[in-house]
Design a protein around this nucleic acid. Structure first.
Length: 512
DNA sequence: AAAAAAT
């Protein structure tokens, strides 16, 4: 066993060397084995647990295969070699994507949507409704994996705003049978807003297909399950708590025909306490009735700890990863704003940032607590500034209204907790303000993933963007230093008492 | 601390 592991490790080294993978992947490897055992799934009842145990039993073999033994793994060194040519053809940023295949199945990246054997109505939706011409880089790589046999599981990571949603939405639409009135695809999202957003994209793309969708956050989300009746829509999208209840207690969501399960913001869904149990339960309930279903995990971020956990929760998955160094979004200019005090921070927001933001496209101000969101909102409004705020304590109707106004452009500045940190896609967002630096719970460690997600709300699909990070004490200062180190990017400072500094800097970022 | 959603 030890020998096997060692030779597998050696092999992995070779493969990585040939792929010019960054050296820090090594330390990741260590962290992986150390960390993942600490994440627990309540073992007694779930089939997922059973499935997992089986995976572990097959562990000797599996590790070997997954980690680079010739048997199953086809690392694609030719990807690296051909990348310049590919880039020309697929018109993508020069990102070096790392693919690890779990089976012998060869995949050719899709140069056009025609390569994917999609139905005519679906293609029509892509071209006329979505106005897509050809697959983006991440779409070109993942869609063949999703849509062709053996319909392998997939763990995929790609930039914010690079078209991940299309990958899994098209994946679901491509796999379901429009003529069968039973749920066949399920998409789990961390927030109500994201579920709605994904549903909207799906319905738009599905316009000519006859495929319908049920969403836990629909207008009728107060309707009791018994009144609603069995779900016959081909696709179901929602938040984990309600989805779980629909499948178990309410019994209106039948998993017998389920072909594909998607986790959007998958690192969050699998690793965050509160989400994890529900996610595992959903997986096990589907596995019981449709053992051969396909699982897709999508996120812009997978910390090494979570990546290891994901690999164990979703066995034999193909992997498509973007190296960490390429993820820090060079298109988004990031700045440090040192504020004299906590009160001074509000002044900086009010006097320096708001007047500019009102002239810009749209902005999101992120804060750490619900209270802070409401407080900032009222206090800025009292000063005559137009803005809205959103946080999980508000009613569904209120949240929907705020989002609707923001989407329509009626409001330009939105103050938000981390409800909107992930996935929220609004092309006009050019400026993100971190009023608080995101922190990992119970520590004074910055939450790097969350930071990346937050600033990724701007600069959607290659557009320009800027982020102001407000710090007003040593803790904030230290955390921002750590963020700089982690992404290996220095941030310029914007002096709060320099009248024109903010405007100058936004010009520099290509915004003003 | 916040997130979903239930109690």
């Amino acid at each position: 066993m030890a020998a096997t592991e060692e030779s597998a490790a050696a092999l992995l080294q070779d493969v990585m060397a040939s792929m010019k993978v960054r050296p820090d992947d090594d330390e990741d490897e260590e962290e992986v084995t150390k960390e993942w055992g600490s994440v627990e799934v309540d073992a007694e009842e779930t089939d997922a647990a059973v499935k997992k145990v089986q995976e572990k039993e097959a562990g000797g073999v599996k590790e070997e295969v997954d980690d680079g033994d010739g048997g199953g793994t086809v690392d694609l060194p030719e990807m690296a070699l051909k990348s310049e040519k590919l880039n020309e053809e697929v018109e993508s940023p020069d990102t070096e994507i790392k693919k690890v295949l779990a089976t012998d199945t060869p995949y050719t990246s899709a140069k056009s949507f025609e390569d994917l054997n999609l139905t005519e109505p679906l293609l029509k939706g892509l071209y006329t409704e979505m106005k897509f011409e050809r697959p983006s880089r991440i779409q070109a790589e993942t869609l063949p994996m999703i849509l062709s046999p053996p319909y392998a599981n997939l763990i995929a990571q790609a930039h914010n705003g690079s078209g991940k949603t299309t990958c899994f939405v098209l994946g679901m639409l491509g796999r379901v049978d429009a003529n069968l009135n039973a749920p066949q695809a399920l998409c789990v999202c961390p927030t109500r807003e994201l579920a709605i957003q994904n549903e909207e994209v799906l319905l738009k793309m599905a316009k000519y297909t006859g495929i319908t969708c049920a969403c836990t956050a629909g207008a009728d989300d107060r309707v009791s399950a018994s009144r609603r009746g069995k779900i016959t829509d081909q696709v179901v999208i929602g938040t984990p708590g309600t989805l779980k209840r629909w499948m178990s207690k309410d019994r209106i969501l039948d998993a017998r025909r389920m072909k594909i399960l998607v986790f959007d913001e998958a690192d969050h869904m699998l690793a965050t306490e509160g989400f994890q149990d529900d996610s595992m339960r959903i997986m096990s309930m589907i596995a019981r009735q449709s053992p051969n279903y396909q699982i897709l995990l999508f996120s812009a971020t997978f910390s090494e700890r979570v990546k290891a956990f994901a690999r164990n929760s979703v066995p034999r998955a193909n992997e498509v990863f973007v190296p960490k160094e390429d993820l820090s979004l060079d298109v988004i200019k990031q700045y440090r704003v040192r504020c004299p005090s906590s009160q001074g921070r509000l002044d900086v927001l009010r006097n320096n940032i708001f007047p500019l933001a009102e002239k810009l496209g749209q902005s999101i101000i992120f804060v750490r607590t619900r209270e802070n969101a409401s407080f900032l909102h009222t206090s800025l409004q009292q000063d005559g500034h137009r803005c809205t705020s959103i946080q999980g304590g508000m009613s569904h109707e209120e949240r929907d209204r705020v989002i609707r106004e923001y989407r329509s452009g009626e409001t330009k500045i939105l103050i938000s907790t981390d409800v909107l940190a992930r996935g929220f896609d609004q092309a006009q967002v050019t400026l993100v303000v971190n009023y608080d630096i995101p922190v990992k719970m119970g520590t004074w460690e910055p939450d790097y993933e969350l930071y990346l997600h937050r600033i990724g709300r701007s600069g959607r699909f290659g557009r320009k963007g800027a982020a102001f990070n407000l710090v007003c004490d040593r803790k904030g200062e230290e955390m921002l230093n750590k963020i700089e180190d982690h992404f290996d990017r220095r941030m310029d400072e914007v002096k709060y008492d320099d009248e024109d500094a903010f405007e100058r800097v936004l010009k520099e970022a290509g915004l003003a």
